[in-house]
Design a protein around this nucleic acid. Sequence first.
DNA 1: TTTGATACAAAACAAGTTGTTCTGTATTTA
DNA 2: TAAATACAGAACAACTTGTTTTGTATCAAA
Lengths: 187, 187
Amino acid sequence: MDRRQIKTRQAIFSAFVKLLETKRYEKITVQEILDEANIGRSTFYAHFETKDELLKAICKELFGHIIDSAIDKTHTHGLYSKGEAPQSVFCHLLQHLQENDNNILGLLSCESREIFLRYFKDSLNELIQTQFVNHSRRENQDLPQDFLVNHISGSFVEMVLWWLKGREKHTPEELDHYFRSVIEPIL
Amino acid sequence: MDRRQIKTRQAIFSAFVKLLETKRYEKITVQEILDEANIGRSTFYAHFETKDELLKAICKELFGHIIDSAIDKTHTHGLYSKGEAPQSVFCHLLQHLQENDNNILGLLSCESREIFLRYFKDSLNELIQTQFVNHSRRENQDLPQDFLVNHISGSFVEMVLWWLKGREKHTPEELDHYFRSVIEPIL
DNA sequence: TTTGATACAAAACAAGTTGTTCTGTATTTA
DNA sequence: TAAATACAGAACAACTTGTTTTGTATCAAA
């Protein structure tokens, strides 16, 4: 890939993430991105068809790593192992988030966070779903499985939201403990 | 209030809700609302300063009733009463939603549902918060109270989301049972 | 029923936005 | 070095937003 392309793509991403810190996604104009990234109009449209496409590309790129890393984790350690594992996938995810590569925490707490949180939750949902299918020795036969899966991924994302709203005063390990406390009793 | 104003306001609301069923909020133009509601441009701007203000007004109007009704419920029966009460506030809320006045379920499952879900959750959060403060004989001293409050309201909204995604195949009573199963063990 | 107020429709408007297309230049790869 | 291509800059039509103006229809109060 051409070095110029890489540089431009990165400039657009950085500009977009920076703008998102102070402005809602819908209110950001292409012109503002151009000014912030210092690129020409035609250049932008050579990279992305629309602003929406840029959004999708960012989601894929930023959450791709985190989710992939979590998938690897489940392949070796499973999802939770009901207290046995010293570290759950969820703790792993939180630690990964806290590293804040590419200011991913900024995206998850900006005004347009819903967009990214929903993307995050959908990825998480798939991960948990497959995990449940694999070794499902569930005791709670009362509840529909997809309800439970949704409850877990939904609660996790809501916890991240709560965490960020409180300016990250808690450690990933503490959060993992909180999450275990409200999830393990129902498994 | 002038009858003409009421009629116009209602026409705008209906048009807006109808458009939201097939189009994302951000993609809806004022012109489309005018055409659907059969009103003039100046008329719209006499009622609402911007499209965003219209959105706020709709949220207030539609969720106001439901939340107020839930608040009344808590005043007489409390939030959950740990299994004693035949009907929880949550069941009450779900039944209210199912009546689908003003197509509120349409709003909660349309492409722009995040907007309304977040508004719904914030209202719910306040309600649960006050309830916790009132008679807080919590046993789980391990968890921060606002984490628990957030977990409950968040999980509820996520359940509603799951419910609507599955085209409402479950009754409010069933959902209430599911919700008790995942919330009561941790209280 | 009349009268004064006002909600309304229609149209024109400036300012801003989007996505396209063109030309010429700079950079990269082979 | 040469051919390919990524880029800047500018101009463009089509659309959107919110304002303003003018004349008409409807309302509420006397």
